[in-house]
Design a protein around this nucleic acid. Structure first.
Lengths: 108, 108
DNA sequence: GTTTAATATTGCAATATTACGATTAATGTT
DNA sequence: AACATTAATCGTAATATTGCAATATTAAAC
């Protein structure tokens, strides 16, 4: 085994899991926080900011992009990255809903 | 390699990553959604609900508990699980803050 | 068209995750 | 005490992730 049994879960459950998984690494959280600060930037800026090699940063950016957390626009020979509002809103709504439910009912 | 370089990131970044990572699997999302529905339950209930074996469910519960997403209270020979409001609130605030920042400034 | 700059991709080693059968531990029931 | 119930742990196979050096790709600049 070792492979996630995605086929047993709903598309929505898989979608949320993909988004959350993309955020499940401190380097990717750091990238997001940097993007929050500077609004938009290129890969090289992040390489200068983080203690990781360029291929590693590039890989993290790819995962964030595949999950839909960030967008990348080609600008000449560089790529301009920024946060993708839509999917962050999806997560925000998701956690708001959970919190609302949870806060209503205490447990064991 | 293969190990995350947690020491290069802040405690807060690592904390958020741990919480997000715990949610980065559809089975764990399904567990959370089930807990939202029934408010509290024991491991066996989830085993009946999901297409996964008991040890697998137990392992997922352990990860959710270690991350602080759920709480587990011993009740006789069973363990009563429920969502942990506090850390879900942490995530909710985190994504609200990101969304607020992002919605203010369009990018490339 | 050659050089430069910015990223992406490839290949690989180290480590982590996922899943489950078998077993164990702990409490409840008879 | 013997047995049943519930869940955790152990062991292990399959797969995924992380990180980087080396290389490839792409587009600007000269």
């Amino acid at each position: 085994m070792g492979a996630t049994k995605t086929e047993h879960f709903t598309d929505r459950q898989n979608k949320i899991a993909v988004l959350a998984k993309a955020l499940g690494h401190p380097a990717r959280i750091a990238i997001i926080e940097y993007l929050m600060k500077v609004n938009e930037c290129i890969c090289g800026d992040i390489v200068n900011e983080l203690p990781l090699a360029q291929p590693t940063v590039s890989q993290h950016l790819k995962e964030l992009k595949n999950a839909g957390i960030i967008k990348g626009n080609i600008e000449g020979n560089a790529v301009c990255y920024c946060l993708d509002e839509k999917n962050i809103a999806v997560l925000n709504t998701y956690f708001s809903d959970i919190l609302q439910k949870v806060s209503k009912a205490k447990c064991c």
